[in-house]
Design a protein around this nucleic acid. Structure first.
Lengths: 350, 350
DNA sequence: CTGAAAGCGCTAACAG
DNA sequence: CTGTTAGCGCTTTCAG
């Protein structure tokens, strides 16, 4: 087992001082070419690499980003992470991941663990429980300590910080418009409880677009799923609710606020004898593996998770590397555009 | 912006020495109850938390694990990570994620970045390119430096370290046996090139099981996919190959070595007019979202990724926390059991 | 019971 | 051109 070389060891070996070695390796002009040569050769030979921890302590920055998400077994978050990682790596940052599991306590814990020097800043998408409790003290405190936060997807108006979002209202408007243009008359929405901001906004976009097209939105056609406490048989539970819903309403199109809802609705509808898209058109939100491989392949609006991740990382790193210390203001929120990916669950527009 | 308190600050504020504060907070018996009280109160008030980086430097351990995987947008890896995270957190460790993107260079880079003090040990699943090049110097070097590695899924016999795997031969045997028991006569396998060890082993299990049942394996019924350089239109490319394959052979069952292959094969077969499972049974490896929501829902063998992650983390942390320094031997490889999850692409056994 | 000092690995200001 | 010193935040002897 080879001991990792340190400056000290190299210094002793070469019979010079530690600072000489340090300077030589950083190519300081204070050092003679001769010694530089010598030091560099030795360093290469022993494969010297500076110790990150020591550097972090010295520089008071770790060059690592903390990413906290509710769930990693989830296509969207996964694409966001890969966007973050990629960009962060390019700029010399590492990524450390914390999972909240949708739990407030675990979110707080993760934040605290990492805030004690392990990371320079956070990228976070909030847990459902946090959204519900409306307890944001942990976020406020970390920002207060000078650790910047970038929120994405599930963001908060109440907290001022950089944000990356999709224009949920507009996007779901797009989706609903597509449905209308394809001939749908009775469009239902399957969404989340309103405390999930994205769910609320998407519902809003749905309603606005109906109005804009001269259709009166009906509470009747809104199915709000509360899936939080049903993780054991979530799927069966979902399918049941949807079955009931689809059976009892007179609908010819469904806009589902996420992929799972869309797929499950399709499944329920198929069991009820609906042909898709002839009898019932379906459009989902968030493009993932499921949509692409569903039967039939699902038309969705794509959130471009990778791009969101990249943007979030960029906002964060830019802020971290900004000189000025009085940067409490000028927070930016970038809106990532969305696209409708037409597959086979919607009708062509004539 | 509140300044994070340090021992120094508390010490000055309370007019005692830094070491007194440190000891008081760690409840040393060298300190009087009185001062302890005082210090603790102050610390709580200002929400003092020791700086992780300083601790890391001092203790020469970071309490964080480096996890390097080829791909994060991938259900299996995602479940593994969540298994690692969960267990690691319980034992007070953080997880830092590196993505190799199946590239050798990025794998090496990630390893090197993290090996310089950022982490205490690695959990890794190798990139395809690494497997192909058979260049393992980076692994050997990091182990040599005393940084333990746990490999999972894509592991190497050539490297001695802890490992977590599924018994690929046995498991794919199970799958094939299931197919035989369900009446299949001509069973094809869709697998990867042999340099991917799991692919090779699964092929082996397939062949052995055929032989055991008195069937002579035929190279003819093996489709080896090389998907490495086709990421642009991977899907179309895959489907084409499978279409050709299914069309020209006389088969009534397919064992696919991963989820995507299984789904795509099903799609191709459906287009060719096969009914599933009546005309063609299909069974996949790796249980993911795709399988569950496929049409029809796919019978698969589940790899229990979460369990694998947990086991890997446990092996690693146990090794890290072992006292003894002469631990070059006694590497363990734990084999996580697999299960067949019967859904609707296989026939019931009479 | 408390504090001064050394050291983890590194950098940088300042002497020499 | 090279070395000494101090310090990042913390723990831990070792004196007092």
């Amino acid at each position: 087992m080879k001991q990792k070389p340190t400056l000290k060891i190299i210094a002793k070996e070469l019979d010079v001082s530690v600072s000489t070695v340090s300077k030589a390796l950083r190519d300081s002009k204070e050092i003679s070419e001769d010694t530089k040569q010598k030091v560099r050769a030795f360093a290469k030979l022993y494969n010297y690499k500076p110790n990150n921890i020591a550097l972090s302590l010295k520089n008071r920055k770790t060059k690592t980003l903390g990413v906290i998400i509710p769930e990693i077994v989830h296509h969207f978050f996964t694409t966001v992470i890969s966007g973050i990682e990629n960009y962060a790596n390019q700029r010399g940052y590492n990524v450390i991941v914390g999972l909240s599991d949708e739990s407030f306590d675990r979110e707080v814990l993760n934040l605290e663990m990492l805030a004690n020097g392990s990371i320079d800043g956070f990228i976070i998408s909030l847990a459902k429980e946090t959204l519900q409790k409306k307890d944001y003290h942990h976020l406020i405190e970390t920002i207060d300590q000078g650790i910047p936060i970038v929120m994405f997807d599930r963001v908060l108006d109440e907290i001022s910080c950089d944000k990356v979002v999709v224009d949920d209202v507009e996007t779901s408007g797009k989706a609903v418009q597509k449905l209308i243009d394809s001939g749908a008359k009775n469009i239902a929405i399957i969404t989340t409880e309103d405390y999930v901001s994205v769910g609320r906004l998407r519902t809003e976009g749905y309603q606005q677009t109906l109005v804009k097209n001269g259709i009166t939105p009906s509470e009747n056609l809104i199915l709000r799923i509360d899936d939080q406490f049903n993780s054991d048989d979530l799927l069966g539970h979902l399918e049941n609710q949807m079955d009931q819903f689809i059976k009892t309403k007179q609908i010819d199109a469904i806009f589902a606020v996420n992929e799972l809802y869309a797929i499950t609705a399709m499944k329920a509808a198929r069991h009820l004898g609906f042909r898709i898209p002839e009898d019932l058109q379906v459009i989902g939100f968030t493009d993932g593996v499921l949509s692409k491989h569903a039967y039939p392949p699902l038309t969705t609006v794509s959130q471009h998770g990778k791009e969101m991740g990249k943007q979030a990382a960029e906002l964060l790193i830019d802020r971290l590397e900004k000189e000025t210390d009085q940067q409490d203001d000028h927070y930016r929120t970038v809106i990532v555009k969305t696209d409708i990916i037409e597959r086979e669950t919607t009708q062509a527009v004539d």
